[in-house]
């Protein structure tokens, strides 16, 4: 399919927005630069290669005064450039963990680190920007915006990350990149269709293209194939694997499917609020 060249072409327009995120950015943008750095201040030893990691994370939900502990001290780490799968029974807290990694929620205790920078305690603005610039997320139910066309859905994160002025300045490169991504996911002929006119697989492809528009470092996928038939599930998976292998995109994927899980570089199981490393 496609390689990393389109990613580089977009790198320029978003640098100004990314500059505000210096805290969360790795010291070197260079992809090979990660090897030299080690995190010395951390009490635990985490691999410098880890893209995102959770350290002793707990999370519980209060429901009618009774508190349900979902995560009871999770240590998790996804390595740079690897594809990590999270499995576990329904209700074991996979989605919860993914949301914590994606700063959509905050842990009760413990820390979330992204490229060796703590991100869970950042102010809301910075977390919003982090999600926008560094992160791509795809969900089981696609979560496209029904009022927008496929193309508009794809460029939505780029629009969110930029002011109207800079959006119009970079419009042509954003549109070019969006079309490349649509091409990559095989939907370039349906740019003006609304999500309601697309099939499940097509919607998930659109969601992937949307997740990639800001050229993120990390892709979080919550059961991306959960709602799809075997065939389209496989093709989505193929797409993700290609992204991982050709562009070196770090992927953390929650899945129910043992088969898919086995194909990943790393595999963890959530059980009883703890993480077991299987692979």
């Amino acid at each position: 399919m496609n390689n990393s060249t389109p990613a580089k072409s977009l790198a320029k327009p978003i640098t100004s927005a990314a500059n505000q995120l210096r805290v969360v950015r790795p010291e070197t943008d260079n992809e090979s630069g990660h090897a030299e750095k080690t995190h010395s201040t951390s009490p635990q030893s985490f691999s410098s290669e880890s893209m995102v990691d959770a350290r002793g994370v707990t999370k519980s939900y209060r429901r009618h005064k009774t508190s349900v502990a979902v995560l009871k001290g999770v240590d998790f780490s996804a390595e740079h450039g690897k594809m990590t799968a999270i499995v576990g029974q329904s209700g074991s807290g996979k989605s919860t963990l993914l949301h914590l990694l994606g700063t959509l929620d905050r842990p009760d205790s413990g820390e979330i680190h992204f490229a060796n920078q703590r991100i869970d305690n950042l102010p809301a603005r910075k977390r919003d920007a982090f999600r926008n610039q560094q992160l791509g997320m795809i969900f089981q139910f696609y979560h496209l915006l029904p009022e927008l066309t496929l193309l508009e859905n794809v460029i939505a994160p780029a629009m969110i990350g930029q002011s109207i002025l800079s959006y119009f300045r970079n419009r042509s490169s954003i549109l070019k990149r969006a079309k490349e991504l649509a091409e990559m996911v095989g939907l370039s002929h349906r740019l003006n269709h609304k999500p309601s006119q697309l099939s499940g697989g097509e919607m998930q492809r659109t969601a992937i293209a949307r997740a990639l528009i800001t050229d993120p470092k990390l892709l979080l996928a919550d059961e991306p194939t959960g709602n799809l038939d075997q065939e389209s599930g496989q093709s989505i998976l193929q797409l993700l694997r290609n992204l991982n292998q050709e562009s070196g995109l770090t992927i953390v994927m929650v899945t129910h499917d043992e088969n898919i899980a086995m194909q990943c570089d790393a595999l963890v199981r959530l059980k009883g609020g703890k993480v077991e490393r299987l692979k």
Partner: peptide, 16 residues
């Protein structure tokens, strides 16, 4: 509501 969640997951700030 869901769209709001999506927008937030895409990094839209509350003010936006």
């Amino acid at each position: 509501t869901r769209d709001i969640g999506v927008l937030k997951s895409l990094g839209a700030p509350g003010s936006g």
